[in-house]
């Protein structure tokens, strides 16, 4: 205490700062950095949870490279991203753009669009799973058959299942994106629009030349944010394919699910760790590439 009182004000503040940071630094080291390193180490090991961890060299990575299921899973993971991000951003922008121009019951409409964002992915996965069932159970197929249209195999199909599982994820995310877009639109100074109107520019040109360029920070944020979300999809797939996890024929299995299965169903912890390192790399590369492309333009 005596030591402390002799310190200069700046020094005292430094002591306070480190005091504030002690617990957090401990937390980040123990709960974030150490586990990250541990996962990387584990990816070079072999472990089935019961025995001891043993070194396996590059074996896990070699196996991954030669595993056709992994490449299928890799493709699936990107399909979720490639379909999910553009579709959800276009829909949410169109809605936000028009909602911004509407006053009548504006708050109510906004609330309705936002509502799905607050739901639990697990609960909604089961709701949608019910919708997708064949007749006589599923809502969609009942609707189709009442209109005299043949059934669609939603989940039991190698081509339809992935989009079908993606749909609730897109649906639940729209509300958030709409709110962010609307906040972005509000932040554009009206003077820009006024100037354009005076020049008699069409709405379409205003949208293209003023609104979209000025929304760039918002768009960058949403693209990166939602891409990471789609690359990490798990809850919906897990709950909608409990009978045939990631199926049919692995057509819906994303990387996170493969990790889960490898680790907690086959107990191949090392192999699973190698998959997490791949996931980490993918997320890093995708975010960096997106940031670079979108910032430059």
């Amino acid at each position: 205490m005596k030591l402390y009182s002799r310190l200069s004000i700046d020094r005292k503040r430094t002591v306070w700062a480190w005091g504030f940071l002690t617990v957090p630094i401990l937390f980040y080291v123990v709960i974030r950095f150490y586990p990250t390193a541990d996962a990387m180490v584990l990816s070079f090991q072999s472990w089935n949870l019961l025995g001891a961890r043993s070194w396996a060299g590059l074996e896990n990575y070699v196996r991954l490279w030669n595993d056709p299921v992994f490449w299928q899973v890799f493709r699936n993971t990107f399909m979720y991203l490639i379909l999910g991000t553009p579709i959800s951003l276009v829909i949410s922008f169109v809605i936000a753009y028009n909602l911004d121009k509407t006053r009548f019951l504006h708050g109510t409409l906004r609330a309705l669009y936002f509502l799905p964002f607050l739901t639990t992915a697990v609960a909604m996965a089961w709701v949608w799973r019910w919708f997708y069932q064949p007749v006589p159970i599923g809502v969609f197929n009942n609707l189709l058959s009442s209109m005299g249209i043949g059934q669609i195999r939603f989940l039991n199909s190698t081509t339809n299942a992935l989009p079908a599982i993606l749909a609730p994820a897109v649906w639940a995310g729209l509300g958030f994106q709409i709110i962010i877009f609307m906040a972005g639109l509000r932040a554009i100074p009206t003077s820009y629009y006024e100037a354009a109107r005076i020049d008699g520019v069409s709405n379409w040109t205003i949208l293209r030349e003023i609104t979209l360029p000025l929304l760039k920070p918002t768009i960058v944020f949403l693209v990166v944010f939602s891409s990471i979300g789609f690359l990490r999809i798990f809850d919906q797939v897990f709950n909608m394919t409990t009978n045939d996890p990631g199926g049919p024929l692995n057509s819906t299995m994303p990387l996170v699910m493969m990790i889960y299965q490898t680790a907690f169903s086959s107990y191949q912890m090392g192999y699973a760790a190698a998959q997490t390192v791949v996931l980490f790399t993918v997320l890093l590369v995708v975010s960096l590439v997106q940031l670079r492309i979108l910032r430059d333009r």
Binding site: P35, A39, I259, A263, M269, F280
Partner: peptide
């Protein structure tokens, strides 16, 4: 350092956490 942990997905950490 703290910001960089944003790039580490939870899914990577679940194994060590477990």
């Amino acid at each position: 350092a703290i910001l960089s942990t944003l790039m580490i997905p939870t899914e990577m950490l679940v194994l060590p956490w477990y």
